[in-house]
Amino acid sequence: MKLSSQNATIAKYHMSNLTIIKPKKVFSFDDLREVWQYRELLYFFTWRDIKVRYKQTYIGIMWAVFQPFVTMVIFSIFFGILLKVPSNGVPYPIFVYTGLIFWQFFSSSLADTSNVLIANQAIVTKVYFPRLILPFSSVMTKFVDFTIAAMILFGMMLYYGYTPNLVGILVFPLLLVITFMISVGGGLILAAINVKYRDVRYVLPFFIQILLFVTPVIYPASVAEKYSWILAINPMTGVIQNARAALLGTTPINWLLISISFIVCAIILIVGIVNFKKAERHFADTI
């Protein structure tokens, strides 16, 4: 009796520590738990990318501010002053900047994530860790850039005298979550394709550029008038339009649009993760 109970504890101990390596691995919730177990590595990868980037450029951290800021100035001159693009009644610079920082968070995450497995191939082929960590860390890195760029937005809001209402402040994190989901989800799909077809990354910048013009970044969704629902298919439309609504009060917050964006992004994220897990087992052999 005593012996059997001892055996039972040994068996239990082994159960908790048991790894089974099998040919086929499809997605299970254990994968997400594993990502959580490796959260320190997620932190280290993000930390590495930020550190290295700011060490390599002379202007360092300013780069995160410089990029959207200069784009904002140029867009303001050409689209705001010269072309007189409507901006829902708020000053064009703050209108376009709000759109730009979300857009750049999304587009740079997508571009980086799609290439993350190839950029880290030395590690991917030599060490085991949940591969999902890599795309997540790319997006985290871009989120740091976003936070820095958002401080300029804060300054501009003070300058132009905008104070968001309480609902706006509560909606803002939700918009970030949506952007996060589509960046990771879309990035995961592209990353898996990119391992197999290496020319995808050359097509991507072009694709992202086109996407900028079908997203209401430089113009309000209202310019499309009765066809503006077509723009709503693009989840970033919901995010950017509602970011303006939340912070600048351009339009009332469109809950329907937020819900649609959220559902679309959640689907993209799930498809992304499942597909990535399916493709994962070939990464080390193909890279």
């Binding site: 048991l18 790894t19 099998k22 040919p23």
Partner: peptide
């Protein structure tokens, strides 16, 4: 790092 095509390993 790479999965097997057949079989199983218990560690």
């Amino acid at each position: 790092i790479t999965p097997p095509t057949t079989g199983e390993i218990k560690i």
